[in-house]
């Protein structure tokens, strides 16, 4: 059970904001007036038919924006899920078994820490077909160090507690203990890190797409920004093209981070007897 201690403006505003984007991601066709691939007159200014005008090939920018939510959020959350699962598994194993397993896994973590993600993606993109899932894979597989460390240190702490020792004494298997006894007691440090990993992944993707690396056909907000700048949107002062995706990225990341902070506010709970 997760208890939310920091109810309040912070928490609700984060949820509300993220909620908007999630709705955009789930029901793009209901919200967007047109299919983002449909072509109209290019370089149109905002008007009643096109809320945010059209881009260089005539796609409705507002529709692109709404569809982009799904892509950006999927990348963010999928990478974070991958990162969290790997970090949790490694941190738990290292912290619970200690000794050789700990040395090896933490050594591995240090190595991964050194690998620069963005250049790696660029290199991989050059050799493999760039795509959404490649991006998710790379971002997910090379960002788990921080979660692993935190999970390991919490595991080291929790495994010394009476109920874990008791479970060992009763003959429960290691896997059962790690999943049933330890995880519920450390999950509260993982949830804020999960949210931050999502935010980080979204920013990484946005940066890559903006630079024109990664997969230009994905249709993420980063891609939109990239095209806005490279296809004359900036030069023509078309703020309705380059501002909205940037704003969306920013607001989405802020809302996720804020929710992460709200999760952090939850602690074990202190009482006066």
């Amino acid at each position: 059970m997760i208890h939310f201690e920091r109810q309040g403006l912070l928490w609700y505003s984060g949820i509300f904001l993220l909620g908007i984007f999630i709705v955009m991601a789930i029901f793009p066709s209901q919200i967007a007036p047109y299919d983002p691939g449909e072509r109209f007159m290019p370089y149109e200014e905002p008007e009643s038919g096109h809320l945010l005008g059209t881009n260089d090939i005539g796609n409705d920018i507002f529709s692109e924006l709404v569809s982009g939510a799904r892509i950006s959020l999927i990348i963010g959350f999928a990478s974070a899920i991958l990162t969290t699962i790997i970090g949790l598994a490694i941190g738990l194993t290292a912290g619970y078994f200690r000794g050789l397993a700990d040395e090896v896994l933490m050594g591995l973590t240090d190595v991964v820490l050194i690998i620069p993600k963005i250049p790696l993606i660029i290199v991989l993109a050059a050799f493999l077909r760039p795509g959404l899932w490649l991006l998710v894979l790379v971002l997910g597989v090379f960002s788990w160090e921080s979660i692993a460390r935190v999970v390991r240190s919490k595991t080291l702490q929790v495994r010394e507690m009476g109920f874990v020792k008791s479970a060992e004494c009763m003959g429960f298997g290691s896997l059962h203990i790690m999943i049933s006894e330890i995880i519920p007691n450390i999950i509260y440090v993982v949830t804020p890190k999960f949210m931050l990993a999502t935010a980080a992944a979204m920013i990484s993707e946005a940066s890559l797409s903006f630079l024109g690396l990664g997969d230009p056909s994905m249709g993420s907000w980063g891609n939109m920004l990239s095209f806005a700048f490279s296809r004359g949107g900036f030069v023509r002062d078309m703020w309705w093209w380059y501002l909205p995706p940037g704003l969306c990225i920013t607001l989405c990341v802020i809302s996720i981070t804020v929710i992460g902070f709200a999760f952090e506010g939850e602690d074990e709970g202190v009482r006066i007897e």
Binding site: G162, F163, K165, S166, E181, N185, E268
Partner: peptide
């Protein structure tokens, strides 16, 4: 084990 509060999973 010692410490009744730690003997059970909170």
């Amino acid at each position: 084990f010692q410490d009744p509060t730690g003997a059970l999973n909170p």
